[in-house]
Design a protein around this nucleic acid. Structure first.
Length: 336
DNA sequence: TCTGGGGTCCTCTTTCTC
DNA sequence: TCTGGAGAAAGAGGACCC
């Protein structure tokens, strides 16, 4: 299940006068400032606006669109309501971010279409929002199916449909194939999932390594036996910020880093974790990104220790170019 | 000219330890 | 004492996801 234009739909829900207008949710909501599009309403998409596009570019494409800031608290509140509805249908649910989830309904006596229809109806009755559902024998295919008839779709894919309905799709539709891999594959003259499936296992492993090559081989055939992950522990907490204008002022960078450390430490303490390694990330004005990591003698969750480690990392960068972004991450988490 | 923020996982290289 | 592995851990970077 995948919510339709989720952030935009939540905004329309609380401000009905926005319905039917091109809506762009992203960054601070100011399209003259740095930021990217998180979600564009379907009206805005007709202008060519899509997720991950710089806000300034979106503004040029559609100056009369309504630009709004991202309000994670509200989206997350609505997300919880939706996830609760899911749990009414099956105890086995995997959360995939704020607006997506997998549900294992293989134990249910009702038909899968029946369940999907009921879920859509319930979500709409409770939240007024629409979603798209894909039903398939595994997560890989269900994910592709959920995207096939957006918005408000219900798509069923079986093993026998793979050749006719999955193979014609572009490789990009496969989970795990991003812009880079799409580019490499294009050089090999592979553009569709079917063409990928025609490549030999050896060729893919040679080209992409053991793990990813094997994955592509199986995924192109619709094979996926990964289980639903119903519980997981976080591996790291991080905060990063992009400056409105690139800076070479050490004070500005240091102050931001100190603020970010505070937030990460607050996360650690709130969630009850200690961290054993601290990483500082710097992105320069040319978009080159570097990281420096310090391992602590023992796990820590106090601001002073994390701050010292972060500044020790910061000292190891050669700050010759202007800095665009600074970030800090606490990893190697333990609960004791 | 532009390219966010919060994550995960994988790969390669270097460093440490036995 | 010198040399050489093997294997683990640490560190850096990159690709991808929502």
């Amino acid at each position: 299940m995948d919510m339709d234009a989720f952030f935009a739909a939540v905004e329309v829900r609380r401000r009905p006068e926005l319905r039917g207008k091109p809506l762009v949710i992203g960054g601070s909501g100011d399209p003259t400032k740095r930021g990217v599009v998180s979600t564009a309403s379907y009206e805005a998409r007709t202008c060519g606006i899509h997720s991950a596009m710089p806000l300034m570019k979106a503004y040029k494409l559609c100056p009369h669109a309504v630009f709004l800031p991202v309000d994670y608290r509200e989206y997350s509140r609505v997300s919880h309501i939706i996830k609760d509805i899911f749990h009414e249908f099956s105890a086995v649910m995997e959360d995939v971010g704020i607006d997506e989830a997998f549900l294992d309904i293989s134990a249910s006596e009702k038909s899968s279409e029946q369940i999907a229809a009921e879920i859509k109806e319930r979500i709409n009755a409770v939240t007024g929002l629409s979603c798209s559902i894909g039903i398939a024998p595994n997560k890989l295919l269900a994910k592709i199916a959920s995207d096939m008839q957006k918005p408000d779709g219900l798509t069923i894919i079986t093993e026998t449909d793979i050749e006719s309905r999955i193979w014609p799709l572009p490789v990009r539709k496969l989970w795990g194939v991003g812009p880079k891999t799409e580019g490499y594959l294009k050089q090999l003259d592979i553009q569709t999932i079917g063409e990928l499936a025609a490549a030999s296992q050896n060729q893919l492993i040679e080209q992409f390594g053991n793990s990813y090559g094997q994955y592509l081989y199986e995924a192109s055939r619709g094979m996926d036996d990964s289980p639903l992950v119903t519980h997981w522990e976080p591996k790291s907490f991080s905060r990063e910020t992009t400056f409105q204008a690139d800076t070479d002022n050490w004070q500005t960078i240091a102050r931001s880093l100190a603020d970010l450390v505070k937030e990460v430490v607050d996360d650690l303490r709130e969630k009850g974790y200690k961290s054993r390694n601290v990483t500082v990330k710097i992105r320069f004005s040319d978009f080159q990104t570097q990281t420096r990591t310090k391992t602590l003698p023992e796990p820590a969750d106090d601001r002073e220790t994390v701050r010292r480690a972060a500044f020790a990392c910061l000292a190891r960068f050669e700050l010759k170019k202007k800095v665009r972004l600074v970030g800090v991450r606490a990893g190697g988490l333990s609960t004791e």
